[in-house]
């Protein structure tokens, strides 16, 4: 049995997996451990082998994308199952494994990758930037956001923000890892605690005004909202502060609407355009 203790990242897994694969180590002979969760004693154990140059073992590009996603997951089995999938794809000769959605290993990895995809998507949706100032030298606006993703997705999710907000300086801070953009480079630094983030932006009030006004109290569907915007995200969303208020007042507002007397039809105003519209219609009526 070989113990492979790695940092929980895609690049660490890839390096280790490539090496094991070249030696033809079968998946059932490897015990994968997360270095950040393993007692110090084991971490000091020297690596059993040194890196070798990659040989011509080829895997589909699709596998690498899948592996990058799966490594961002937190399930403890992910490195082992991913290695088993890799072994079967190469030594095992199951070249078309990834197009076999009923295969348990493929399916499991796809399920994990999907969860990662969803988490990334939610990060793109729910990050809220706060303006903290303007850089005196460059005149660029500076923004900071705090976000708590479920998985370790900061590096996978932030290139999106670079494309979209290239002309602002921004930092996205999370408990695991932070991302920073200065107009030139996207850099990463270790996670921080939420206390380092300003907790409001002057525009949050205006945004809540919008959120309150766009809500239709006559069609309350709380479950539909929650399935798309689970409560775990609410604490970092400025608009979520008024959700309870909106729900609890909706019944009363609906009653008022129904109790409001119906408005009579007002006569047509004196407007040339309207007259033309109505005139044309009368003209067309004969044609059916």
């Amino acid at each position: 049995m070989i113990t492979a203790t790695i940092q929980p990242t895609f690049s660490a897994w890839r390096g280790q997996a490539r090496e094991l694969l070249q030696r033809g180590i079968r998946p059932e002979h490897v015990d994968w451990c997360d270095a950040t969760q393993t007692p110090a004693l084991l971490m000091e154990e020297p690596a059993a082998y040194t890196a070798r140059p990659p040989t011509d073992i080829k895997v589909p590009a699709e596998f690498l994308n899948l592996a990058a996603s799966v490594c961002a997951h937190t399930d403890a089995r992910r490195f082992a199952i991913l290695y088993r999938l890799l072994y079967r794809l190469t030594w095992g000769g199951e070249r078309h494994l990834l197009s076999h959605p009923a295969d348990p290993d493929t399916r499991q990895c796809q399920v994990w990758a999907k969860a990662i995809g969803r988490d990334i998507h939610k990060m793109h949706a729910f990050v809220r930037f706060r303006l903290i100032g303007v850089d005196e030298a460059t005149q660029r606006e500076q923004f900071v956001a705090w976000f708590e993703p479920e998985y370790r997705i900061v590096q996978l999710a932030t290139p999106f923000f670079r494309k979209r907000f290239a002309s602002m300086d921004w930092s996205i801070l999370t408990p695991h890892e932070c991302a920073h953009w200065d107009g030139q480079d996207l850099t990463f630094s270790p996670g921080v605690s939420q206390s380092e983030v300003p907790d409001a932006d002057a525009h949050d009030d205006l945004w809540r005004t919008y959120y309150r006004s766009i809500f239709n109290p006559a069609r309350l569907k709380v479950q539909a909202m929650q399935s798309e915007m689970p409560q775990k995200y609410w604490k970092n969303l400025p608009e979520a502060q008024i959700i309870h208020e909106l729900i609890s007042s909706s019944g009363e507002r609906m009653k008022q609407m129904i109790a409001t007397p119906e408005r009579p039809v007002k006569p047509m105003p004196d407007n040339a355009y309207l007259k033309k519209l109505h005139g044309r219609k009368r003209g067309a009526e004969g044609e059916g």
Binding site: A125, R219, Q223, L237, L246
Partner: peptide
């Protein structure tokens, strides 16, 4: 500023779902 392309993003949900 800005980007588009591919999937749209829902940035929030109101209690009407």
């Amino acid at each position: 500023i800005g980007s588009t392309g591919g999937m749209g993003i829902c940035h929030s949900y109101t209690p009407d779902g």
